[in-house]
């Protein structure tokens, strides 16, 4: 059963980021930071990891002179996260 858990989601920040994106459309960096109570650098490194797995889309744009970064979960990411949740649930049932 343990092998069904996705290693990509073992970290607290990644788990949190995926949770946010599962129930929201595009979400801003600042919102993520506020909800997860994490530092900029910490979030950025986990974002990169999830992006390289194609679990999330990252959009960078400028609003006036301010840069704005937003995230969205991909279809692949949604499926991977759902499978991870199912595995977690299964594990808890068995223990």
């Amino acid at each position: 059963m343990i092998e069904n858990l996705n290693k990509a989601f073992e970290n607290r920040i990644r788990l949190g980021l995926m949770s946010i994106l599962m129930v929201n459309d595009w979400v801003e960096f600042n919102k993520v930071k506020e909800l997860l109570n994490a530092t900029d650098g910490n979030i950025a490194s986990h974002v990169n990891a999830l992006e390289s797995l194609n679990y999330i889309d990252v959009k960078k744009e400028f609003v006036g002179k301010k840069p704005k970064t937003t995230y969205r979960v991909t279809k692949l990411g949604k499926k991977a996260f759902k499978d991870h949740l199912d595995a977690l649930e299964q594990l808890l049932k068995e223990l």
């Binding site: 949190g16 949770s19 979400v27 594990l91 808890l92 223990l95």
Partner: peptide, 22 residues
Amino acid sequence: DVNRHYFENLNEIRSIMEKSSR
């Protein structure tokens, strides 16, 4: 302990989903 860890995981997911969508 492992059991508890996963349980907390699920709880945190639920709480963040709730907080971020309301």
